[in-house]
């Protein structure tokens, strides 16, 4: 669907986006992650053909972005506004017309979208009469109208109440079911875990993570077992450290130990295990850990992985390191 290859963009000699490569597959919800100032907005602006890359290539279904198929991409920027002194339906239909729909069809589609987001009764009111939350829903509709094939949403959940967050999630699922591809840029990691298939994280313009969300989580899980057991022998093969956490035991494993071998050893020693789990790190913690590594704040591993390695791993559906 969307392919970004070796894209570089510099300002004043400083690379804001540096050799970033990834692909977004048809019908998936793809997360673009990164701390503030990582280069996400610049990358999105290049994908939407608002900015031109210094080098590299961005293609949508094999053709360079921009030109004749600009209307196939819609973009909901983080900083967004609407024409305030026009009726809601007209403000919306205008975006539809710019995406190549006839005036009447655009108006019909605008009405249908307003009905979907619960704003049908406000269609003829001026935009400035709407509350902030309502305006945000209209802004979302500007990205939906005209049936774009790729939707780029930058922090779409910000400022929405829980009901409207749920509504947005439903709409995203509907669009995905209809074959629309979504590129989602957000700092809300729980939404990425719930909604997204794959993710790319950039930091200081470099790729630092790329792959399927579940693989990233698996790979960044602590190498540890958490279990509730009757007792624990003094020595367990493959276990480096044991600590009690909230009535459970956390067993940090040796790097080469496999969880199944450790569990088998405990059972062989007649330990009664009531429950066990392989520790998982929330995506948010992975984000913080990776960003800190990239900034050199973590004492563990250092330096971002090479772009080539990430692309190879990410394209394979795995993680980047």
């Amino acid at each position: 669907m969307l392919e970004v290859r070796e894209v570089v963009k510099s300002y004043d000699g400083r690379a804001v986006v540096n050799r970033v490569s990834f692909e977004v597959r048809p019908g998936e919800i793809f997360a673009l992650l990164g701390p503030n100032g990582a280069g996400k907005t610049t990358l999105i602006r290049m994908i939407t053909d608002i900015l031109k890359p210094d080098s590299g290539q961005i293609t949508l279904e094999g053709r360079p972005v921009g030109g004749g198929h600009k209307h196939e991409i819609s973009y909901l920027p983080e900083e967004r506004g609407l024409y305030r002194r026009v009726p809601v339906v007209e403000a919306l239909a205008y975006y539809g017309r710019l995406r190549g729909i006839a005036a009447r069809t655009a108006r019909d589609e605008a009405m249908a979208l307003l009905e979907r987001v619960g704003l049908k009764d406000w269609a003829t009111k001026q935009v400035q009469a709407l509350s902030k939350g309502m305006q945000q829903k209209v802004q979302l509709c500007t990205a939906l109208i005209g049936s774009p094939r790729l939707m780029i949403l930058d922090e779409p959940f910000t400022g929405l109440d829980p009901l409207n967050v749920q509504l947005l999630e439903e709409v995203l699922r509907e669009r995905r079911a209809a074959g629309v591809t979504v590129l989602l840029s957000t700092h809300q990691m729980n939404k990425v875990e719930e909604q997204c298939d794959r993710a790319l994280m950039i930091n200081r313009g470099h790729m630092v993570l790329y792959g399927a969300v579940r693989d990233l989580k698996r790979q960044y899980a602590d190498h540890a077992l958490t279990l509730r057991a009757s007792r624990l022998p003094a020595q367990v093969p493959g276990v480096r450290e044991v600590e009690a956490v909230n009535g459970e035991l956390k067993l940090t494993l040796e790097p080469d130990a496999r969880p199944r071998d450790v569990l088998k050893a405990l059972v062989d020693q007649d330990v009664e295990i009531e429950s066990f789990s392989h520790s998982a790190m929330p995506l948010e913690d992975i984000f913080i850990k990776v960003v800190r590594e990239g900034l050199g704040l973590d004492h563990g591993q250092s330096g971002p992985p090479t772009a080539d390695a990430l692309v190879e791993a990410g394209a394979a559906g795995g993680r980047g390191r």
């Binding site: 602006r45 209307h71 973009y75 967004r80 609407l82 305030r84 710019l98 802004q139």
Partner: peptide
Amino acid sequence: EEKESRILESMLCTVN
């Protein structure tokens, strides 16, 4: 006005 009200960026995705 359009710059001040942040309208243009989403439009520039669709038109140049």
